[in-house]
Amino acid sequence: MVEAITAILLVAGGIFAFIASVGMLRLPDTIIRMHAATKAGALGSGLIFLALACYYLELSITLRALATVFFLLLTAPVAAHLIGRAAYCSRVNLWHKTWIDEFANICDWCETSAEEEGASGCELEEKGTQ
């Protein structure tokens, strides 16, 4: 019974990880690809570690496997946020069907968070374009 549950969780995790990778290869732009990579990838490896927790059924191993799942779920959004921010700040090309880009007309929100610059973002942007 335990082995059947382990097999089901394992196969589900493997399929989700594979879907994440196919999405990584086929989706049209960086930010859409990031969607596939971070969500489906974290789900896939989380399911595989749940299978590991079911398979051994010892306290120390199961706790460590659950801690790994927790850690993956904690770090995947942080990494995704940082990569997405870096991609958007570096003006990566968006997909041609993207019809909403809320920061496109705001004068450069990336610059306003720069630490050393005393000036506001708008002035920096005007300086930068000339």
């Binding site: 990584m24 960086t30 570690f49 990566v92 090309n93």
Partner: peptide, 23 residues
């Protein structure tokens, strides 16, 4: 095409290697 793409790919590869180690 962009360095950000490569960072995303590296992130996915590391998550997949963690899953591979579990399996």
């Amino acid at each position: 095409p962009d360095p950000a793409d490569r960072i995303v790919a590296l992130d996915l590869i590391s998550v997949l290697i963690v899953a591979y180690l579990g399996a």
